[in-house]
Nucleic acid binder design. Structure first.
Lengths: 202, 202, 202, 202
DNA sequence: CATGAATGAGCCTTCATTCAT
DNA sequence: TATGAATGAAGGCTCATTCAT
């Protein structure tokens, strides 16, 4: 019989890669890079460990490609774009984002967050991955600074150095996300409101 | 030379254990349980890795005993006691504590925090250690609830469910501690002030 | 289009096998058995690695059949036949052969040589392959003994036990072939002449 | 009880390293670098595979250090020195050397030869090892050129470019050593005499 | 008590081989 | 017949743990 045609193969390849990357993001997020066993990713993806190496040439590359895929595809980016165009106040945007960030695992987004957390506390991260993490961090900072400024102009946000404020905000968010995402699920809006009091005028 | 008497031997033994545990706390805090190599603890303690096994029967026991020792000895407990008797307002106490928590490694205290963070995100933690972590968490909660209530009575702290407030406060603190302790060093008081706005009245 | 008839199919099948075997000989010669990857043979043959297993049931069989094919087909045998009928002196025949042996890869012949070299230094070679190598060796010995005797009778070759002489000659040739075929390309005739002084009368 | 004193430890370490390197030379010589399993070296040395990594940080380093040790210690070097001072004719020196080279495994020397043979036919040899092999080859060339010239002046050796002659001689020797050292054991002197006819005058 | 030599389980990675299409 | 996806055995290397000295 004739072999599969190219489209079919391409499809399978992509399916599999995505399947693996999805699993990888989950497992990396839970365990960090070093403690993540390829065998676990494979199990999570429902395949043999050998197959992982059919699609990626090393554990490191699984990580890298998974991160890139997740960012590209990225729900977060899309979300940020949508968010910036919503007709709501800056503070509401911030609230909305916080909620998004803390409602883990709905999308891969929070996995990325957690993975980057891990990486930032890890030695010997390969430079191309390190760079990746920096870029992601930068993206958030750059996204929020104008919003914070706007919020300050609108009188919603306290008059402190906006960069410092954004830094503080994101530091705490990311610390908290890496920590216990479950904690937030209950009563989320209320908790977030309290949390955001730290930057609001009243 | 006369042989050492039993007390002296006991002392040496204890010195050594403490030496090891101190090192262990530091290294566990930095790397988590699994990624911590016995050899690193030994190096940090300035002894050979074999010796660790004279004092502890496994890596797990090193962790467990180190945690217990740290809590017993505990700077944190002492510190909390002192804190509760200081003649300062509840809010100032909270500020003071936050500062203490974030000024890492001055005491073993923050190591404990970070270790517990790690453990809480780890699977297969042996039950006796898990229990330990719960107790520590509880201790903080119980310590802070009265202070928060006092603060509410004094009008310094917002009128929300004190347990919820304490929970939120500690969750964030611990998330942030596990994240990037260095971030806070600069301009610490100012950052903490902003952070605490989330619970203060205006 | 009409389907291919059986002969044609058979032909295609044979073409493919030959294509693979030719590639296999080359790659085996370059790397030895164990270090030769099926994927490399496939790439060299311009086919997928899976296809190799349609024609051969294992790597070992690829080796075996390739060797047999090469011997059957055999350029070497043909060459030896031609050689024996050339109207040149025994010594010239030997010179000619040496040249043939050292001018690698023109024919598959030198590949066989090199492969057999490899095999002789390898443990756990399956007996049917081992036997094969012995036969090949034997063939050469039997071919050259009469020529050496003739050379002795003609006074061109020194009066030593011809079997010993042939053994020495072939041992060195094969050692040298396995070693560095490139070395000989430059100035080949001259080098060979010197080399052959070892058996010539003057 | 007190731990071993430094000398004792140093001794054990050295013993073991030598034990491993000796085994390594043997196994590398037999199989080449890639096909040599650390576990085989360990077995040959009568130790566990893990221990190898106590003394060397990688397979590559086992090879490198083993080669360096063998050259340093080196029987060959010593032998060459002695040889150059013997009161025998240049040709006799060459004969003597050939004999030495082919009486394998008496010393590690022939292992080195064989290993270097392997390496020269291998891709991706790390540069520091490659350099090593070059140096060794150079050593022989430089040692023999004056002897060949002397032999030519004494009328024992044919008047050909000495470098070419030495090159040919060493190429064949090394090819042959790598090939079948056993072949030569029987009747060695006689075989060597014939072989050397290739460079001798009549 | 103290050292570090020694062991072996376990993880990453490669590659022969099988199999669905 | 042809492809390449999929599997799993095996080998390099690390590290917790044991043990002789």
């Amino acid at each position: 019989m004739a072999p599969l045609n190219e489209d079919q193969l391409e499809n399978i390849r992509n399916e599999r890669k995505i399947q693996i990357m999805r699993a990888a993001l989950k497992v990396f997020a839970a365990n960090g890079f070093k403690l993540t066993k390829i065998s676990l990713i494979a199990k999570e993806a429902g395949i043999s460990h050998g197959l992982v190496y059919h699609y990626f040439k090393s554990k490191e590359e699984v990580l890298h490609e998974s991160l890139e895929w997740a960012m590209e595809l990225n729900e977060t980016k899309k979300y940020l774009n949508e968010l910036s165009e919503m007709a709501i106040s800056p503070l509401e945007k911030i609230h909305n984002f916080t909620k998004f960030a803390l409602s883990s695992s709905k999308y891969e987004s929070s996995d990325i967050f957690r993975i980057i957390q891990h990486l930032e506390h890890t030695e010997d991260v390969p430079s191309h991955i390190l760079e990746f993490t920096k870029n992601v961090g930068m993206m958030y900072v750059e996204f929020f600074i104008p919003i914070f400024i706007e919020g300050q102009e609108a009188g919603e946000i306290i008059q402190e150095n906006p960069e410092e404020l954004v830094g503080l905000f994101l530091t705490i968010i990311s610390g908290v996300m890496a920590d216990d995402p479950d904690y937030w699920h209950e009563n989320m809006d209320h908790k977030i409101s309290i949390f955001l009091r730290m930057i609001t005028t009243r």
